[in-house]
Nucleic acid binder design. Structure first.
Lengths: 218, 218
DNA sequence: TCTTGGCCTTGATGCAAATCAAAATCCGAA
DNA sequence: TTCGGATTTTGATTTGCATCAAGGCCAAGA
């Protein structure tokens, strides 16, 4: 059960002669929703720690995960003032709340403001990579690429191996990669049988052979 | 055969006390290339008329069309100073060349500068729509959605019908939608047999029943 | 007009992943 | 620790799209 948060009262603005917007750091627990598609965008969120999930849903219920957000990412860039995805917390996160109004008002200064354009352009490039993935890769290549990406973003070195925690459910992985949970599961099993990865419980994967995984990613 | 253009000499900058970058309008013919993946980004291009194609190619040769650019679009947003797609002209275009340097230097002013952030955010939203298309839709839904989109961007009203010209080859449509040319062709034929569209030559489609096409788009 | 070559369409077949269906496992609550 | 529901895995079957293959169309040039 997801609960939507209201940060309206969280920011405590002053209005000096030269407006300088302030940021607030908030911790948000697993399972909470930051915003929904169509909401007025009050804040952008810079992730200090934790994992977020951005998704969109077609009228008939088909779901696409747009991105998983890790530490360093900024989520919630609005279009014409509105959010265009849903955003939920998968792993309790520390977030820097950046007032969305800094985007509209050229006179308002904010430490994060100059980063935003660069971040937007990087996000565009990242989404193009995701296109290649969705349109051109096989199920095995998709899953291998996904594991490599998550490992780069939040993997823990463990001697020769890398431990990757997957805070998202198989459904989320499937909806991110454009395939079914059964196919996700089967491909994980095949990588496990090939000794490329080991699976510990359902939410932890250890990369045993990074080179083989890279090959599998195409 | 594509030819790359060099606009280095096109812009004629002065360096006044308060730098104000100038734009130049250029006409570029069908078949020319504006830039390639990896090129240093000297300009962004605002499309006044015509059609552009942005693409990326995997090492093994598989191609993904990232977007088709129509009048009003801005293409060539760089990442860390470099272009991350190839860009070719499909239909002779009038382009406003916007110097990329205005992105880096906060002191430089330019009429288009304030638009760029808004445009970047809209592009992100547009790419998310494309995700839904690639990952969730069937071949028939993809092609119907594609025709509707092109019709919105560059369709001509013809009484009750809408005439849509397709300046791109079947290969481009296929590489944009993540399918093969054979499947594109088959789906076009089915829409034609269902009297939803009429096909005139290979590059012109007339939408006969907009509602049915919308249904087919899912 | 005939030829050539590049697209595009249509047809036949194969395969990767979806769907349908159980069984196994995980994990939080009592 | 056991229980029970949710999630994940595995198996059997179907299917939509890719692949392989052939033929048609159209424009440019001989």
């Amino acid at each position: 059960m997801y609960v939507t948060l209201d940060f309206e009262s969280a920011a405590d603005f002053h209005t000096p002669a030269v407006p300088v917007a302030k940021s607030v750091i908030k911790q948000v627990a697993n399972g909470q929703s930051l915003f929904f598609e169509g909401d007025t965008a009050n804040y952008l969120y810079k992730i200090k720690s934790g994992v977020l999930r951005q998704s969109r849903v077609l009228p008939d219920g088909r779901t696409q995960i747009i991105s998983f957000g890790f530490a360093g990412d900024i989520v919630g860039l609005p279009v014409k003032g509105y959010h265009h995805t849903n955003c939920d917390v998968l792993e309790t996160a520390e977030l820097e709340l950046i007032p969305a109004k800094i985007l509209n008002d050229p006179a308002t200064s904010h430490p994060a403001k100059s980063d935003l354009m660069a971040y937007a352009m990087e996000e565009i490039a990242g989404m193009q990579d995701h296109f290649m993935m969705l349109a051109l890769k096989t199920a095995k290549e998709k899953l291998a690429s996904f594991l490599l990406t998550v490992s780069q973003r939040s993997g823990r070195e463990l001697g020769n191996y890398t431990e990757v925690s997957l805070p998202m459910a198989r459904t989320d992985i499937a909806d991110f990669l454009g395939m079914t949970i059964e196919t996700v599961s089967r491909q994980l099993s095949e990588l496990r049988k090939a000794k490329i990865i080991a699976v510990d419980g359902t939410r932890t994967v250890v990369i045993l052979d990074h080179d083989m995984l890279q090959d599998a990613a195409g």
